[in-house]
Amino acid sequence: MKPYLTLLLLLTALPRMAGAEVHFCGLDEAQELNARALMPLAEAPSDLPPWRVERLYKQSPADLERALEALGYYQPEIRQRLVRDEDCWHAHFDVTPGPPVRWRGLEVGISDAAASDPGVQALADRDRPRAGEVFNHGDYTRYKNGLLAAVNARGYFDAEYSLAEVRVEREALAADLRLQLAAGQRYRFGELSFTEGIIRQRILESYSDIRSGEPYSSESVNNLLLELNSSGYFGSVSIDTEPLDEADKTVPVTVKLTPGPRRIYSVGLGYATDTGRRAGSTSPTGGSTAVDTSSNRACSAQN
Rank of each mutant, 00 (worst) to 15 (best):
A150G: 11
R81Y: 10
D245W: 03
Y233A: 03
M17W: 04
L41H: 02
P97D: 07
R81M: 12
R186V: 00
T195A: 06
Y156R: 05
D63R: 03
D139T: 13
E171R: 12
Q201F: 04
D94G: 14
T285Q: 14
L179A: 06
E77N: 11
K256P: 06
Y74W: 15
D240Y: 02
W103T: 01
E29F: 10
S217K: 06
D127H: 09
V53T: 03
L7A: 14
D292I: 10
A91Q: 06
L106H: 10
K2Y: 14
Y187G: 02
P259A: 07
A159P: 00
A131K: 15
R52K: 12
R186T: 02
R84L: 08
L244K: 09
A153Y: 00
V95F: 03
T289P: 00
L269M: 13
R52L: 08
N222Y: 05
R36D: 08
L71Y: 09
S294E: 13
V108N: 06
S283H: 06
E219I: 07
L5W: 09
G232I: 00
S208V: 01
V255H: 01
I210R: 00
R262S: 13
P61G: 10
R81W: 08
S116W: 10
R262M: 10
A13W: 14
L33K: 13
H23Y: 14
H137P: 03
Y161L: 08
A115C: 09
D85Y: 00
E169M: 07
L64Q: 00
Q121K: 08
P76M: 05
A247W: 05
R170G: 15
L41T: 01
E165V: 12
Q59N: 12
T141C: 07
T293W: 12
D28G: 02
I203R: 04
A44L: 15
Y265Q: 02
A279R: 07
W89G: 01
L226T: 11
N145M: 13
D63A: 05
L48W: 05
L225G: 02
S220K: 11
N296I: 05
I198H: 06
I199M: 01
E65Q: 13
H90L: 12
